[in-house]
Amino acid sequence: MKLRLLSLYPDQMNIYADRGNILFLQHRCEWRGIDFEVTRCGPGDRFDPEAFDLLYMGGGQDRDQKAVAGDLIETKQQSMRIAKESGAAILAVCGGYQLLGEYYELEGEAIAGLGLVDLRTVREPGPRLIGPVAIKVDLDGRDRVLAGFENHGGRTRLGAATPLGKVMHGFGNNGEDGFEGVREDNLIGTYLHGPLLPKNAWLADHLIATGLEHHHGERPDLEPLEDSLEQAAHEAALAAARAG
């Protein structure tokens, strides 16, 4: 079996150690004997949507985000749409999450997004939403918890799209409606930034299984790994969120 990962803007959208997510996926595939292949896709690059099973886009500083937004629409919009519709797993984090929507309005200027999901983000007056966060997620028909850290000035509001989860501790999409992130088909967008997968091994395995299903047509039962450190790190992140 083989998982083909596309890393979108690895040099621009990586502000919160996003490479930790890719490293985590890579080892968990390799330990199970699953081939893991990473392709970098930067400014100006186009990609074949049928050649990838898992797409990752991380967060960037405002300047980097502005710089990639135009390129994203120009060179990758069509491929992103096809990948999503074909059931590829997509994980977009923080700045990458904001760019999935219609626009990100910043200092009176609306940066156009991919329009892949029905959401809008506005940098409203008020403090950045910063701190440890935990959300309740219903995925694979099970109640799960995602724990991590958020740091965003933008407030995201969903239209007809489904949120990823309900905020247990922290701010979530906008600090008001109690929801966090977005999910649609096999796309997940979230403000839990940077290395969220190491703190939530179950989500990493969910993405691996979804990606393998996309490639091989059948959802595999992944071999369990010795995850005691992963579990302890998850619990420590959850405890940090609980403490606020």
């Binding site: 080892h27 703190k199 450190l229 992963e230 302890a232 790190a233 420590a236």
Partner: peptide
């Protein structure tokens, strides 16, 4: 430390 387990996890990976 308060996040010892995540540190150890980083080293594992």
């Amino acid at each position: 430390g308060t996040r010892a387990s995540e540190m150890a996890l980083r080293l594992k990976y």
